[in-house]
Every structure is written in structure tokens, then in C-alpha cells.
Amino acid sequence: MFDAITNYFSNLTPEHYFFFLFAIVAIASALEVVMQRSPLYSAVALIFTMAALAANFVLLKAQFLAAIQIIVYAGAIIVLFVFVIMLLNVRAEESRLDRFTALRWIAAPSAIVLFAGAFAAIRFSNLDTLAPSPTAAAAGTTERIAEVMFTKYLLPFEAASVLIMMAIVGALVLAARAKEYDAELSGIENQEVPPKPEPEAQPEEVEVS
């Protein structure tokens, strides 16, 4: 038993140390994301998770993605979250969780089942025997990614750009029309609905909230 442990540790390479270091950071900060009551702290904790995962990407020789992970996720997306949190000036989450306690009895087991299932799948598979690919380093270069992206996967790439475009428009519409909806809602509450010219052509009231 003890021998096995010493054996295990004596076989460790620097890669192992780094992996465990960053894995612990990632798991700890991920837990922190969930356990913090203030969304602002959650967001900051998420940055640490991202950074730890980026380090894991480097271990997996995906250097380009590691950089993108930091720039896009930590640099852009999380900043966006922080902006919104500050914009809305959200108070710390209340601690009461009593309203739907019944759900906890569904959620916790299903989460455990989920993890257990994944764990079992990993264990039962013979992934352990998978040897690292010798071309791993070449696969992660910017050049290689660009080549694949702009030849074989050009269509998904373009589709993704369209998606971004739609997201921009959608976000604009959602954020900008909120005020109009306010006015509309208060107007409907305060005054009578004007007579419709055609009874069968009544527009359906669509609400986002």
C-alpha cells in the first residue's frame, strides 16, 4: 500500500505536478462559483477556473486555444458578465432556499447519478490504453487550426459568424426594447384597450419576461 503510493509519486513527471496543481485550482474555483452568494464573486472565481483550464490546454499542447480561452472567456465574456452585474447593482443572493426544497431531492441524486455515470463510463472504457498522439503538438498550432477552419470547416465557421451577428441583434433588441415594454405594460394597466378595427385580427400580446 505504502509502496504503491511511493511508487506512484516517484513516477510523477513535472507534467503530473502541473496537472494536479491546475486541476485542484479548477475544481476549487468551480466550487467557489457555485457556492458564492454574490454573483460578482462567482464571476471572479470563474476567471480562475478559466485560467486553470487554459493551463490544462497548454499541457494538452493546444497553445492557441489556451490563448483564446484567456482572451475570449476571461477577457471578454466574463467582463461582460461583470458589466451587467454592476449595471444591475444586484444585491447578494438571499440565503433562503426553502421554497422548492422538494426539488433538491431530485437534483442532488440526479447530479450524483450523472457524475457516477460519467465516472463509470470513463472507468469501464479502455481510455487508459490510449497513447498520446505524436502529432499532438502539430495539431494545436495556429497555422493548423486556421487551415482546417478555412478549408474543411468553412461552412460551420461562417454559420458561427452569422450566429454571432444574430446574437448581437438579439441582445440589442432585448436590451433596448425593455423600456417600450414597460411603457406598454403600464399603459395597458392604466387605460382601456382601444377598440380594434377587426375583431379577428387581434395581435397577440407577446411578452419576453
Binding site: F100, L103, I106, A107, S110, A111, V113, L114, G117, A118, A120, A121, F124
Partner: peptide, 21 residues
């Protein structure tokens, strides 16, 4: 109730993993 939707999704995911297992 948003949360009940999440529960269903989670349950579904668990079922899928179980199926593959």
C-alpha cells in the same frame, strides 16, 4: 418554474449517460 425544467434536463442527461453505459 425554471428549476423544474432544469431538473428534467438533468434527469434526461443522466438517462442518456446511463443508456450509453
Amino acid at each position: 418554474l425554471t428549476r423544474s425544467y432544469v431538473a428534467v434536463i438533468l434527469l434526461g442527461a443522466a438517462c442518456l449517460v446511463g443508456y450509453f453505459l
